[in-house]
Design a protein around this nucleic acid. Sequence first.
DNA 1: ACGAAAATTCCGAAAAACGGAACAGGATGG
DNA 2: CCATCCTGTTCCGTTTTTCGGAATTTTCGT
Lengths: 252, 252
Amino acid sequence: MDDLAGGLRPLSLLERVAAMEHPATLAELAAGSDVPRPTLHRWLSALVGAGLLQRSPDGRRYEIAPRASQLAFAILSNQPRAALRHDLLRKVVEAVGESCNLTVMHGAEVTYIDRVEAMWPLRITFQRGSRVPVHCSASGKLFLALMPQAKRDAVVRDLTFERFTDSTLADRDALLAEVATIRKQKYALDREEYLAGLVCLAVPVMQKIGRSPTCVAALAMQAPVSRLSCDQMLEKLPALQEAARALAGTLE
Amino acid sequence: MDDLAGGLRPLSLLERVAAMEHPATLAELAAGSDVPRPTLHRWLSALVGAGLLQRSPDGRRYEIAPRASQLAFAILSNQPRAALRHDLLRKVVEAVGESCNLTVMHGAEVTYIDRVEAMWPLRITFQRGSRVPVHCSASGKLFLALMPQAKRDAVVRDLTFERFTDSTLADRDALLAEVATIRKQKYALDREEYLAGLVCLAVPVMQKIGRSPTCVAALAMQAPVSRLSCDQMLEKLPALQEAARALAGTLE
DNA sequence: ACGAAAATTCCGAAAAACGGAACAGGATGG
DNA sequence: CCATCCTGTTCCGTTTTTCGGAATTTTCGT
C-alpha cells in the first residue's frame, strides 16, 4: 500500500486523505500508520504548501484542495488512458445503439468526463467541464444513492431543486425516496427530468478506495424517448453493467 | 506554476505529463524547464517506481499509469467540502449581486479561504489566502466581537492599529466600543476602513465546538460604496444570514 | 556503419529529511 | 475553577537523500 519511495512518500497521505470520508486530523492519520507525528506534520505542511491539501476552516483538519482536483481532471483527460476509456465507451455505444457518457461527481454537480454520440462517426468531443445538477440526472441520483449517508445528507441539504422540465424532481423528499430505490436497484433512470424528450439510464463504475468499494464514476446511456422507452432501455442494462466493469478494470 | 517545494517537486512532472496531449519524452520535458537532465531522469524514475507514470510501449515516452487514475478518481469521488462551500458561495453571490468571501481568523489577521466575484465590471479582486488586519475589516471585528473576552483582550492588546484610510479605527477604545455594538447586532460593517470606496458586511458562521456555539468563520459581502450604501447593504442581511447557516453545515 | 542527439550512470559535495524530545495550547474531567 | 491529558508544533543533532556536472551508453537518422 505505502510502496511510495523517497520524496514521494508524502503522496501516500494525499491518497489516504482522499480515501477518507471526513477530513482527517493529524492524530487520525498518525493512528493509521507508523509514521512519527513530526514527520506526518512535515508531510502535511508540504502538501498544504503545494496546494494539494488545505486546512479545514476550523484549522484542525486537512481536506482536498482545488489544485488536487485540477490535477485529477488533468490526469483523467490525459491521453493513452483516456483513449482506452473512450474505446470502451465506443464499444458500448455500438452494443446498445445509443449515445453514452462517463461522469464523475464534483461538488453538487455531475461533470462529463467523456461522451460518445451514437449517430456520429467517432469524434473525441471532450465536453470536459459540462456540468449538470445532481438532482435531475440519472448519474447524479446514482452517485447520491451509492455514497455514504453523511455525504449524501451534506449534499442534499443545500440543493435548490431548480426545475428544468415537468418531470424534474421537485423536492428533497421525492429525491430521497427515489434514491432509496436506486440504492437497491443499482441503476438510475432519468425520465425526461432534465431535457424534455430525453431519457437516460446510469450504472455505477465501482472501485475500491481504501477498503470499501466506492462509486467513482457513472456510465450512462441516453436516448430520445421517441426511440426508446424506459422499459426498452432497461433491456440494455446487462450490456451497460458489463461495460462498467470493464471501465473499472482500466483503473487497475 | 512550479511552486512545488522540496520532495514534492517531482510532482510538477506528473502535472506536466498530465497536461500534455501526447506522452512526453525526457527531452521534451527538459526543454520546458531548467531542471538538469539527470535530475529529471531521477524524478521520472521515482514516479515510475511509484506507479504514477509508466513508460509507453516503445519505451521512450512517459505516460499516466493506473495508480494515477486511481488517485484521480479517489480525489474526485471524495467530494471536497471546499466544492460544496464554493457552490454555496456562488449561490449567495447570485442572490445578493455582490462579491462575497469566506474568512477565518488566524492570529491577528483575517484570512480569505474562498471568494466568488460578482459579475460587475467594477470590482475589487482579492484572492484566496490574502490576509487583512483584524481591526479594519468587517470579518475581523465580527470575530473579535464573538470570541470569549479573554481571547479578545489578548488579541487587542497586541494590535498596532495601522491606518489604511481616513476611516480606519485609530485606537483600542474606538475598536472596543464598536465591537460591543457588533456583539449585540450579530453583524459587522466595514465603512471604507481598509480600502477607500469599499464597504463590507459580515455575518458569522456559527458552529458548536464543545458545548458552546462558536463563530468559526465569517461570510462577508463587499461592494463599492458608489453602488451600494451601507443601508442598502443591510437589506441583504437576511440572505447572508441564511447562507451562513447553510455554510455551517459544510464545516461539519 | 557513422555521427549526433538522447538517455542513463557515476559519484563527491551539498542539502534535506528524519524523528526523539521538549514545548505549547486547548479540551476534558473532576 | 484548576489540574490533567491529549493534540499539534517546534527544536536540533544525526542520518540519509538528493543534486547535477561529467562521463558513458544507447538510440536514431542517414
